[in-house]
Every structure is written in C-alpha cells, then in structure tokens.
Design a protein around this nucleic acid. Structure first.
Lengths: 150, 150
DNA sequence: TCAAATAAAATCGCTTGCAATTATATAGTG
DNA sequence: CACTATATAATTGCAAGCGATTTTATTTGA
C-alpha cells in the first residue's frame, strides 16, 4: 500500500466505517440467541439497561441516552409494554411526555441480564485494557460525529 | 470505578458493544445526506464498492465480502437493478447462481464516490494511524465473533 | 390574553437485517 | 440411472432505524 497515494486515506477511512458496520452486525448476531432467552432483541435490551439504571424516564430521555428518536422508540416501547416489562403513561405535569416505568416483571428480568453479559464478554475474548481503550475511542468518534450532525 | 468488582468487566464489555452500535448508527447518519446525492443508501454503497473492485460476482460472493446473506441482498440488488446501476442474470454454467454486473451507469457512478469518501474522512477527523489501528482491531474482533457463530 | 412558536410523541413510508422456509439446480452415491 | 444430499437464491414475516409529517400540549411574547 502506497501511503503517498492520497486516495489511500479516504479508502482507509471507508474501511474503518465498514469495520464498525460489520462488527455491529456480528455483535447483534451473538447477542440474539442469548437475548432470545429473555425474549428481548438487542435494542430492547439496551432500553432495559437504561431503565434498570433508573426508570420514570420520558421517551426522549431514553432517546438521548441511546441516540434514538421517538420514531424508533415508540413502537419498541409498545412491544415491551405488551410483553409486560414496562408501563407507558402520560405525565400529569406535562401531558406531552410519556413516562416509562418498569413493572415488577421488568425489574425482575435484571437478574438474568448478568448471565448474558458474562457470556458476551467471553465471546469477545479481549482484555479489560483493550475493552476500555476501544470503548473510549469509539465513543469519542461517535460524539464527534453526533456533534456535527446539526 | 472499582476494578476489583467482577461485575465491572461484563458491564464494560456491554459498554463496548453499545459504543460500536451507536457509532455505527452515527456513521450511517453522516453518510445518508452524502449518499443521497448518488441516490444510494449505505448498504447499497457498500455493494457498489465491492462491484467497483470487480463485478460478475454471484449474490453469495458479494455476501461473503459484506457478511450479509441473500435475504438482505436480493431485495437490495433488485432496487439497484431498478435504479439502472447493475444487472442480475442467472449463470448459464450454474443456473443456481445469479451473476451481478455493473451497467455503464453503475461504472460511471464510481467517479462521484471519491467526493463522498473525502467528506466522510473529514467528518471523522482522525489520523491515519488511528484509522488503521481501529480498523484492524475491529476487524479482528469481528472475525473472532464470526468464527464462533457456528 | 391569545396567536405564533416550540416541544414531545406518534404516525407513515421506506430500507435494512435476519431466522426460517421454499424452490430450483447441481453433486454425489448406490 | 434414480435418489438423496447439498448449494444457491428467493420468499415470508417480523423488528429496527429514520426522514418527514402530524397531533397535541406547552411556552413565549406582543
């Protein structure tokens, strides 16, 4: 590879974007059978992780944490409501907001999440340092991109 | 954060998975307006990148390069066929295979892809070394996960 | 006060992504 | 040859994702 060729750099960057894309798909493919035992998809699992940290959040508060908007979250939350894991109720203080609360079943599901995380960690098979380093780099990159989206 | 707490490691790994997920979404959000000028989505762009390297590929050959299967590719390729960028024809040597060839319009579109890559590189804003390092690490992780999927 | 601006969620239409299944063609085996 | 096994695409059904728009509620400000 001739680094002096200016075309190399854009192509390299393209390869990085593809690496992120294909890794993301591979990760959900590993999560799928694990989460099937909890009757969750990966995005649903992410919502549950947020709510286990603390519920009574509005749709947009969840969206801020996960970088998703109501067009994605509303149908997803409705499915979790049908599953009996959470409730969706209009705030009486501000009728525009819909407040999400965990049900007892939703809170209890947390106990099974540990096993999923353990298995996933094992599947990834890399050191703490590598995980920390990668996480920070990727979050930095994402924050940089999200910042410039407006 | 207490690194002695064993729960920290699985959670860290979970954070890495989310970092990959959210970065992947952020990347497509940056690509979207750029690729709209070429009337392509990001997965369609990936298929075109593969074909620009060399066409006359079967659906599964494209799938191997992109880690996608026919359930995803067949409808996507049909849309690109309707757009006039490629042709889908059964191989006469093996009637099971569908061979994908670029049309003249499909080949010509390549000229506009350079601009997309340049703009994207600028949006990412990181050094060659960082791009190379990240790409290799993420590909390594993906290959490790894909290998253990059977 | 009250119309215009803003904010939150929902809805619509479209494109992935994929597990599971089906249809068809080829390869292999007796 | 026939007959099973395998390979390749296509199809089906569902769940994301999201741009664009709509609906309803709140805020602003003249």
């Amino acid at each position: 590879m001739d680094i002096k060729d200016n075309r190399v750099i854009p192509v390299l960057n393209d390869q990085l974007c593809f690496a992120v894309y294909s890794l993301s798909l591979a990760i959900s493919k590993v999560y799928r059978p694990l989460l099937k035992q909890l009757d969750l998809t990966y995005p649903q699992y992410l919502v549950m992780l947020v709510l286990w940290e603390g519920d009574q959040l509005s749709v947009s508060e969840i969206g801020e944490k996960l970088f998703l908007d109501s067009a994605t979250l509303t149908p997803l939350l409705k499915r979790l409501e049908v599953s009996g894991l959470l409730s969706r109720e209009r705030s009486s203080r501000d009728e525009r907001q819909v407040i999400i609360c965990l049900t007892t079943a939703g809170k209890q599901l947390r106990a099974q999440a540990g096993q999923v995380m353990e298995t996933m960690l094992c599947a990834m098979g890399c050191s703490i340092e590598e995980v920390q380093g990668l996480r920070d780099r990727l979050n930095g990159l994402r924050n940089h991109l999200v910042m410039n989206l407006d």
